[in-house]
């Protein structure tokens, strides 16, 4: 093993990564371009909303409930030290609506629905279903990829909203019902500090962006997967890793834009 060989290996990987990025960008543009069918034949998209959205419901609702309950407990413990337990409602609601709702729902969505999308498309490719479709004069991007993409983009904000609502309920159960924080101040503090435009709409925008990123990554990884068993399983892992990182990085960027100076 010599230095030149090692350098050549690194160079090859870099070139490969850049190449793949370009291919991915073109894939994304093609998906948008061939999206007409997803809306003209909305049934195709509805079907995919079932697979990505409805089937993720249980995990989202349960996770949201527990996250809210933990927030209620931890928040209470911390706020008690400063004698401001009444601010529990605003703490729970703000953390959920601004951050935890969109981010955690997107992370769960990536591992539940994103990985399934990658595996499905990867297998369709491995078993030549994509090729078959292409040779039947049906554009697989329009028929298979785009409906899944739009289903993800539509499902994600709804799932995030359900997660947050469930979390607020969980926080309420622990804070008010269990611990006994005053119910009136719980809700009124919450309403006084959570702004519709500033917090809730921004949360919705975040989850839209996350949904877009996760489905685009999942679909591309599936479409680009080598048509073998190892190829598909590798692509599934990459989907979860890449979309989790993308969610967290995008979250930072979006937060910086949305809440600066406020």
């Amino acid at each position: 093993m010599n230095i030149v060989g090692g350098l050549r290996g690194i160079g090859k990987r870099v070139v490969n990564a850049v190449w793949r990025t370009g291919y991915g960008a073109r894939f994304f543009v093609m998906t948008l371009r061939y999206s007409g069918m997803s809306f003209r034949r909305f049934r195709l998209t509805v079907r995919e909303i079932f697979f990505s959205g409805v089937l993720s419901l249980i995990i989202i609702l349960v996770a949201g409930m527990f996250v809210g309950m933990v927030l209620g407990l931890q928040g209470y413990e911390t706020l008690k030290r400063y004698g401001s337990e009444s601010a529990l409602g605003s703490l729970v609601a703000l953390s959920l609506v601004r951050e935890l709702g969109p981010v955690l729902a997107a992370l769960l969505f990536a591992s539940r629905a994103g990985s399934a999308m990658t595996a499905e498309i990867g297998l369709m490719k491995a078993t030549e279903q994509i090729d078959a479709m292409e040779l039947m004069a049906v554009n697989p991007i329009a028929r298979v990829v785009a409906p899944r993409f739009w289903a993800g983009v539509i499902s994600m904000p709804l799932l995030a909203a359900l997660f947050s609502a469930m979390g607020v309920f969980g926080g309420y159960v622990v804070g008010v019902v269990n611990i006994g924080v005053d119910e009136g101040s719980f809700w009124s503090q919450m309403q006084a500090s959570v702004d519709f435009q500033h917090d809730i709409l921004n949360g919705v925008i975040k989850s839209l962006v996350f949904g877009l990123a996760v489905t685009a990554i999942a679909l591309f990884e599936g479409y680009d997967a080598p048509p073998t068993a190892e190829g598909v399983s590798g692509a599934t892992t990459r989907t979860v890793v890449e979309s989790s990182l993308a969610i967290l990085m995008l979250d930072f960027i979006l937060t910086a834009f949305m809440f600066q100076g406020a």
Partner: peptide, 29 residues
């Protein structure tokens, strides 16, 4: 391509559709 038909090595049937929907696929598209 609409005037061509191709049978793939292992059939390449669409695994998420019934036999009926598979055969009807091109007619519907």
């Amino acid at each position: 391509r609409r005037k061509m038909g191709m049978l793939f090595q292992f059939g390449a049937l669409f695994t998420d559709m019934t036999v009926f929907d598979n055969v009807a696929f091109q007619m519907r598209e």
